[in-house]
Design a protein around this nucleic acid. Structure first.
Lengths: 229, 229
DNA sequence: TATTGTGAAAGGGTTCACAGCG
DNA sequence: CGCTGTGAACCCTTTCACAATA
């Protein structure tokens, strides 16, 4: 009673010329590794090192040189055979690939301690992310300044986002408010959400979300401890 | 000039009866998904739902039912054919697998705003993680209480960790202090580190580390935005 | 009948190993 | 000669599809 494996439909993906036809084929992990390479290149540039081989690039990273070459080759040929990669040029190429060759305005929702920490996190600024507003509902917090931004009432969030054409948000609200918060963010044009609430959120397919769940990170750490007694 | 692909050495892995002989073969992603299932099961148990099928278990997760069944099957047969999985039992099985059937004392290094947020993060308590101490070098912070713990000087960190046999630490110090901090943690017995400093850390192979780099998360989000214009 | 548990196939990412080239 | 860029092999994870079974 063997049955033919059903052939997957011929991959039409978008009846109207959606250009996703060729499957994207760039692994998500490659994108994450580009961020790592970028950090190394920033150091090398500061040290005025003009050229770097794939081998030395990954010296202190959990990445092989073949993998680095493959990752870069997805996007073009940036190196010279027999020599290596030009540091400054590779750095700006990767910045461009990641979309970091521009400023990204960001809104932050939730001005609890985590929100406060994020509001003036220097690491964001270095890569072109600017927190343009912080929203919270607590009247005692409204008007206070964290970093360079003032806390505003959540009721003004949609107007602000629309007015400033903001597409990126960080969410640091209590779990119970997280789904409503992202629904509101999405309704006014946000398409990328960095979520810190420990809640799994359902969103339309065009919205990109990345959740950081600190308990979950600890869980996978201790799973490994347990294996070792 | 074709050359034979070198056969990998016959996988001796541990000349002295290390029981890692059979390669571990459980994907890291499976472990992360177990954490997701656990969260669903906690809700189902509160709602007094006694049994759940793989299909309904993953209803609101980015996971297929076949994947859930495969994930669980790595660890045993917990379900009944034609019926599903018993909620309470599956929940405690997964807790056991992840090592959450016990208390894990945790130390936190760094009492900046992120550290403060972590110190009384309720999400940790739910899964058995107890922050037992917070360490910082800033004299103005020492003695202050965050959540239920008091900030202590970093100079007392090693003694505390050794005395209480602590193996898990969270690091929320400035990037420039991160490597030294984890070196000290490892030297007194810590083997799992959750790192929030944006710095790539080098550690002995037996230490498990998970780094949360918020800028990197934003970078992979905006890469996708860029693809869409 | 409904659903699990699982071989087998497919899919996709990584590594190998070397041709190509400066 | 050295290092990149890459086809092909390899390996790991997911998915399919169905036998087993409550």
């Amino acid at each position: 009673m063997l049955r033919e494996k059903q052939k997957p439909a011929p991959e039409i993906t978008g009846a109207y010329g959606d250009f996703q036809m060729k499957k994207n084929s760039i692994p998500e992990e490659t994108i994450r590794r580009l961020s790592l390479y970028l950090r190394i290149l920033m150091v090398l540039e500061r040290e005025k090192i003009p050229v770097i081989s794939s081998k030395r690039l990954v010296e202190h990273l959990p990445v092989t040189s073949a993998q680095a070459r493959r990752d870069l080759a997805y996007f073009g040929s940036f190196g010279k055979r027999g020599v290596g990669y030009p540091v400054t040029e590779l750095k700006s190429r990767i910045s461009g690939i990641l979309g970091l060759d521009r400023e990204w305005p960001v809104v932050l929702v939730g001005a609890g301690r985590l929100g406060q920490a994020l509001a003036d996190y220097k690491g964001f600024r270095r890569f072109g992310f600017h927190v343009r507003a912080v929203f919270d509902n607590n009247p005692r917090k409204i008007g206070r300044k964290f970093g360079t931004v003032t806390v505003r009432p959540v009721s003004t969030m949609e107007d602000f986002i629309r007015k400033h054409h903001i597409r990126v948000a960080a969410v640091a609200v209590p779990a119970s408010a997280a789904q409503e918060t992202v629904d509101r963010l999405v309704s006014c044009g946000v398409t990328a959400v960095l979520n810190f609430a420990p809640r799994y959120l359902e969103l339309p397919g065009h919205v990109h979300i990345k959740s950081v769940d600190m308990a979950m990170e600890l869980e996978s750490l201790v799973y490994h401890l347990k294996q070792e007694g």
